[in-house]
Amino acid sequence: MEGNKMLTIKDLHAKVGDKEILKGINLNVKEGEIHAIMGPNGSGKSTLSSVLAGRDTFEVTEGEVIMDGKNLLELTPEERSWAGVFLGFQYPIEIPGVSNVNFMKSAVNEHRKQKGLEPLTSAQFLKLMREKMAIVGMDSSFSSRGVNVGFSGGEKKRNEIFQMAMLEPRLAILDETDSGLDVDALRIVATGVNNLKRPDNAFIVITHYQRLLDYIVPDVVHILYKGRIIKTAGKELALEVEQRGYDWLING
């Protein structure tokens, strides 16, 4: 059964300074789908995810991004989050002095406020936090620590998935969540994602390698090259890229 339309990206162009990085991206994501975006370094994968999340270092020069009928490009990063967009960062930011608890409490309660719900009590919040930490196998001692401060690469990525679990986004964009992870950490992250998959949400998984896609099986695979999607196919495309590299696509 076909899911409902969720995200439509039409002819998206974006630049940083004078350098055009995205040169006309078209992408449609429906509810319940997992899309993988692959491509060599410098093809614009991270730029695409940053633009979708509202990073203002990139200037959108053309095109539109519509999510659930809203023009995403007109929204601030926090409004996009309330609209259900979540970006799992390739390099999660360390924020000394802000504890994971306080961070997530602010975020979760702000999401509730936007939905007209009362803030969670401390007890309710801690219960929720414990449940979600269990999903990613995160030790409870992490909750009182500064956001990502002193976390290993794997712990940071787990923290991203934990935050995603807390916020239950409609559309999660995971930007190279697999980079720097060993197989165990990769499995935990993938299990987290698979646990959070529902018929009414969707994922865009940006990755360099096929490896992550062994655990998170995509419905659609796109190859991004020089700011354009040059090929779109089913999950078998990822395997083919793993075996043959990108050259046959770029030169073909």
Partner: peptide, 28 residues
């Protein structure tokens, strides 16, 4: 700016995010 974007991307409004950052600064 990176911290600010990270906080906002999770739905913490700009004003709140800045307060969190300032509290973090004052914390030590």
């Amino acid at each position: 700016e990176n911290e600010l974007f990270y906080l906002r991307s999770r739905g913490v409004p700009m004003k709140e995010a800045k307060i969190l950052q300032q509290m973090a600064f004052a914390y030590s």
